[in-house]
């Protein structure tokens, strides 16, 4: 039985998987980044489909707006980024495929063994709930991890500034 929702899900899943495969199969490094991007957008689409809009938006902001742009920038700054990469050796491909298969099998085993409780409809989560959970100090609150991650980011930023501020040695 296919209704509109199922069709939408399979379309998004197909987009994600196809772009994921293309991103490792292509021999242009820039195209790989773009396919990765579409794959991530497909995942964001699945979040939208699940009506977890906040997670979807964060997925786009962080991965598409941040990480993929950074990847593309580093591609731009490397030499000969426009050239085709050499063809991979056969035995490397075989090992990579084996590794992928092992990972896939492990995930599938986990998924098949997990008893998914039958859902009783959607539970839309509002941003307010997420925010309150994120900053609550009671049981099940995420205040501590949140603060620890902010400390980590602060340390990284201070490190960046220290590196940027280091005066250049006199060259003359």
């Amino acid at each position: 039985m296919m209704n509109g929702s199922t069709i939408l899900f399979y379309t998004l899943a197909a987009l994600t998987l196809t772009c994921g495969v293309l991103s490792i199969a292509t021999r242009h490094i820039f195209r790989a980044a773009i396919y990765l991007l579409f794959s991530l957008i497909g995942i964001a689409g699945i979040y939208f489909w699940l009506s977890y809009e906040f997670i979807a938006a964060v997925q786009i902001v962080v991965y598409v707006g941040g990480i993929v742009v950074l990847i593309i920038f580093s591609i731009f700054l490397t030499h000969q980024a426009g050239e085709k990469l050499p063809k991979q050796q056969l035995n490397r491909g075989i090992w990579a495929m084996l590794a992928v298969f092992c990972g896939f099998a492990l995930t599938m085993v986990q998924v098949l063994q997990h008893p998914f409780p039958s859902g009783d409809g959607l539970h839309p989560v509002t941003v307010r709930q997420i925010g309150e959970k994120m900053l609550s100090t009671t049981d099940g609150g995420y205040a501590l991890p949140f603060e620890i991650i902010s400390m980590l980011l602060l340390a990284a930023m201070v490190g960046c500034i220290v590196i940027a501020l280091r005066s250049k040695p006199e060259t003359t």
């Binding site: 957008i41 938006a57 786009i60």
Partner: peptide, 28 residues
């Protein structure tokens, strides 16, 4: 009228940069 309206706009508009980067790169 989705419940993250404004965040949706900021998120989706960040895809805009990708099209510019793609256009700039692929023009050679």
């Amino acid at each position: 009228d989705l419940n993250i309206g404004v965040l949706y706009v900021t998120a989706v508009s960040s895809i805009m940069v990708i099209s510019i980067l793609m256009a700039g790169w692929s023009s050679n």
